[in-house]
C-alpha cells in the first residue's frame, strides 16, 4: 500500500511517500522545504504560508520523482490537519484535497502530534513506551491507555522548543535555535543558578526564559549551558516520576528537541536508574516531516475509510488526547 503524507503545520512544508506491508513501513521519499525567518525574528504565519505556497508543487513533484511513482499509484493521501498555524495548515490541506478530488484518492486528516509518535515507534521499534514529545509546538509526557494517548504531564506555559527559540532569538540566532544553543552550551561548564519550576507532573518555562535573558548579557555560553542544564533537569525529573508511576519499561523521545544530545544523555541516565529502554527518533526524522503524516494515515486506513472531502477541516488547536486510536 502506497501513501502520500503532507506536512505544513509551521516552518516546514514536506511531502513523503511510504510503502506499508503488513506492520512494516518503508520510507520511499521525504522531501522538505523549511521557512527561515530573518535572524532574531520568529515565525510569521502568513509569511510561512506564502513560503509553503511557493514551494508546494516543487516539493510534491520531487517527492514523487524520488519515490519513483506517479500520483495515480497512490492508495491514499494524508495531511496534517492540526494542531498548527491556520494559514500554514490550510496550504497542506488544499494540496491534499486537490489531489484527492482530482485523482479520486482517499484522504485522511491526521493529528500532527500523533504523527511524531507513530513514526517514532516505526523507526525505533518501541512497543509500549512512555513518550516525551518535545518540539516548538509541544512539551508533553504521554502514555497510551484504552485507545488514547493520555497526558501525564505537560508545560503550563511555553514549550521547550519555544524556550530555546525565544532565548536564541534574543541573542541573535535564527529560528530554529536549538542547534546553535547546544553548540554554544558545549563551550561552557559554568553553571549559573536559574529558576527551576516543576509543578506536580507539569513544568513551567516562562520564568526560566526571563532569567536566562538577563544572564546572557554577562556570558552567552554560560547562559546557554545553564539554560540547557536547568530545562533538561526539569524534564528529566518529570520523566523519572512518570516512569516510576506508569511502570513503563520504555521511554521514547520524539519532536524537534529530541535532536539535542545533552537531553538524550540526561534521559539515558534516568532510564538506567529505572531499568527502562531508551529510544530516540533518528535525527533526520526528529523535526516535522511528511513521513510522520503519511505513516499515521496508512495506519488509520487499516480501520477506516477516507474522510468525505467536505469534512476535511483544519483545526489549529487539535489536542492529541482527543484522538481515538483504533488501529
Amino acid at each position: 500500500m502506497l501513501g502520500l503524507g503532507i506536512e505544513s503545520t509551521a516552518h516546514t512544508f514536506s511531502c513523503a511517500v511510504l510503502e506499508k506491508n503488513g506492520k512494516k513501513g518503508k520510507i520511499l521519499s521525504d522531501v522538505r522545504k523549511i521557512y527561515r525567518p530573518p535572524d532574531g525574528e520568529g515565525i510569521h504565519p502568513r509569511e510561512a504560508s506564502r513560503h509553503h505556497i511557493e514551494n508546494s508543487s516543487t516539493v510534491l513533484s520531487d517527492c514523487l520523482h524520488e519515490a519513483g511513482i506517479k500520483i495515480q499509484d497512490l492508495d491514499l493521501v494524508s495531511y496534517a490537519a492540526g494542531p498548527g498555524l491556520g494559514p500554514c495548515l490550510r496550504v497542506g490541506a488544499v494540496v491534499a484535497r486537490s489531489l484527492a478530488s482530482y485523482y479520486k484518492i482517499p484522504i485522511y486528516p491526521v493529528n500532527h502530534a500523533i504523527g511524531h509518535i507513530e513514526l517514532g515507534k516505526l523507526l525505533t521499534g518501541a512497543q509500549n513506551p512512555l513518550v516525551l514529545l518535545v518540539s516548538g509546538g509541544h512539551t508533553m509526557l504521554l502514555a497510551f491507555l484504552n485507545k488514547q494517548w493520555r497526558v501525564f504531564g505537560e508545560t503550563l506555559d511555553i514549550t521547550l522548543g519555544q524556550l530555546l527559540d525565544q532565548f536564541g532569538r534574543s541573542i541573535g540566532f535564527a529560528s530554529p535555535c536549538g542547534k546553535n544553543i547546544e553548540d554554544l552550551a558545549a563551550t561552557s561548564t559554568n553553571y549559573v543558578s536559574l529558576p527551576y519550576s516543576v509543578k506536580g507532573n507539569d513544568v513551567s518555562f516562562s520564568g526560566l526564559l526571563s532569567a536566562t535573558k538577563s544572564v546572557s548579557s554577562k556570558s552567552k555560553p554560560d547562559a546557554c549551558f545553564s539554560l540547557q542544564e536547568t530545562a533538561f533537569a526539569m524534564i528529566s525529573e518529570a520523566v523519572e516520576r512518570a516512569l516510576s508511576f506508569t511502570r513503563k519499561k520504555e521511554l521514547m523521545v520524539v519532536g524537534g528537541v529530541a535532536a539535542n544530545k545533552r537531553l538524550s544523555e540526561m534521559l539515558q541516565d534516568v532510564c538506567k536508574r529505572h531499568n527502562a529502554k531508551f529510544f530516540v527518533v533518528p535525527l533526520k526524522f526528529a523535526g516535522d516531516c511528511g513521513s510522520q503524516i503519511c505513516w499515521t494515515g496508512l495506519l488509520e486506513s487499516q480501520v477506516k475509510k477516507g474522510a468525505p472531502l467536505e469534512n476535511t477541516f483544519v483545526t489549529q488547536s487539535w489536542r492529541l488526547d482527543t484522538v481515538k486510536i483504533d488501529y
Partner: peptide, 14 residues
C-alpha cells in the same frame, strides 16, 4: 489574496 493563492496551488498540483 489567500483564496486566490490557494486556487493557484490547487491548479499547480493537479
Amino acid at each position: 489574496d489567500e483564496v486566490l493563492e490557494h486556487v493557484q496551488v490547487a491548479l499547480k498540483v493537479i
